[in-house]
Structure formats: structure tokens, C-alpha cells
Design a protein around this nucleic acid. Structure first.
Lengths: 125, 125
DNA sequence: CGTTGACCTGGAGTGCACTCCAGATGAAAT
DNA sequence: ATTTCATCTGGAGTGCACTCCAGGTCAACG
């Protein structure tokens, strides 16, 4: 239970095979193993890393910054502080995102109430 | 206080002048007035509409769907029900977005705690 | 009356993040 | 032995939402 084909990895990670190739090409997936015939072989660590990437991506981190994080991660223990700061900054941005979404949801819900009112007009009281 | 130049409108709405032109061109801003020399003149209603567009945009509604909403809005009172449904669907998607962001934030914060731990190792107890 | 400055138009260009394609390869199934 | 199938590569193409540009108009200012 620790060697996965590209297809399995795509399924488990939620990224398409093309995206996996793309990510490796641009440097987001360093050190992916290959078998004798040159095919990618992913391991559990790779899957974990992909989980982190997915999480960062879906919270809106641009690829350039994920690349920076990846490079730091390759840098070993001396980069822990920087990685920590990067994630803390991102965490704050996620907070702001959530706050902003909620504010805007207020606006939408106000509009919904308004339409609901109009939709009820003319109905028997 | 009810006639605004493109520049003023850009400032008040938060959209760039180019984006305002673009939105008018694709049909998100129907019926923008023009003065004698062909320049756009925005009114308070336009600003309100822009506020709604901004809100939908920032909560992730694709332009194609905003266009549908715009067309419904032009359709008058018979379309209120459809507009209501559109906004309710969107409202649900915003809920999901927020939920998802929070889940992923958990993951990030777990990683932050992990790094904080590593960063403290070796410090005097 | 010349120049500035905000605005106009149609259309081309940009940035991001993929996504698709053609042609090749190599293990496995019929 | 041939076909199938997943995979490989480099590179081109896509979709979205703008953003920029060239060339032109027009009111106002000095």
C-alpha cells in the first residue's frame, strides 16, 4: 500500500493526470519516482503532499506561492520558520475571505428577502 | 447627486473603467445613458446594480450566470420567481464555499501547529 | 486657437491554470 | 504476434475575465 499509478493518484488526490504532470513539470512535485520503463510511481508521502497542495489551491493560493512553499519544504529544517510565516499569512487571508463572503452573503440574502416579499404580493393575506 | 462620469463610477463601484465598458458591451449593464457627445452617464440605480454585480462576482458567480440574472431583471415582474431561485441557489453555493474554506483552514492550522512545534524544539523548556 | 484631458471604439493582448494533442513506448492480454 | 492500454513527451490550445492599445472625438482651459 505505498505505490500508486498516475491514474490511482489522480483518483485519490482529486487532481487530473494532466494536472499531476503539469505540477511535476513546474516543480510542485519534486522527486516523484519512476519505474524501469519511465512511468511515474507515487507513494503515500506524495499523496500527503498532494493533499496539502489541494488544500492551498482551494483556499486560493496562487501557484507561484505554492512553488515558493515547495522550495522551502525542499530546504529542510532551516526553512521551518519561513514556512510557518507563509502558512500563517495564508491563514489570515483565508479568514478575510470567509469574512468577506459572509458580508456579501448578507447582501444576497437581503435581496432574496426582497424578492420573497414581491413574490408574495397579491397572495391572499 | 445622480449623474456620474465613468471615472467617478469606477471609483465608487470598485470596477475599473475598462471593466465597466466591458460589462456594458457584454450586456451586464443594459441601458446606460449617454450625454450629447456620446459619453456614458451613470445614475444611482446603475451604482446599485453595480453593487449587486460586485457582490455576485466576488462570491464566485461566473459572468454567464450574472448575464442570465441581468436578463431576468430586464424581464420585469414575471421573472421575480426565477431570480429568487437563482439567488437562492447561489446563496447555497456560498454556504458550501464557506464550509469548505473552513475545513481546509483546519488542515492549514494543523500544519501551522506542527511547524510551531518543530520551531520550538531545542528551545529551553 | 492650440493643447490638454477624459472619454469613445473595435479589436488585440494578457495572465492564470490548466487541458488537450500527436506521436512514441513498453507491458500485458487474446 | 498483434492489438490494447496506460503511460510518456513537448508543445499547442482553451476558457475566463479582464486589460491594454491605437486612433479618434469633443468640451474646456490658458
Amino acid at each position: 500500500m505505498s505505490a500508486y499509478s498516475p491514474a490511482e493518484t489522480a483518483e485519490k488526490s482529486g487532481f487530473s493526470i494532466d494536472t499531476l504532470r503539469y505540477y511535476e513539470k513546474i516543480g510542485l512535485l519534486p522527486g516523484i519516482a519512476r519505474n524501469a520503463s519511465g512511468r511515474r510511481v507515487f507513494c503515500d508521502d506524495d499523496l500527503q503532499w498532494l493533499g496539502m497542495l489541494r488544500c492551498l489551491r482551494e483556499t486560493g493560493m496562487p501557484i507561484a506561492e505554492m512553488l515558493r512553499y515547495t522550495e522551502l519544504a525542499r530546504g529542510g529544517d532551516e526553512t521551518v520558520q519561513e514556512r510557518l510565516e507563509l502558512l500563517q499569512d495564508h491563514d489570515r487571508r483565508v479568514d478575510e475571505q470567509i469574512t468577506r463572503l459572509r458580508e456579501q452573503q448578507e447582501h444576497i440574502q437581503w435581496k432574496i428577502r426582497l424578492y420573497s416579499g414581491v413574490a408574495c404580493e397579491g397572495l391572499p393575506a
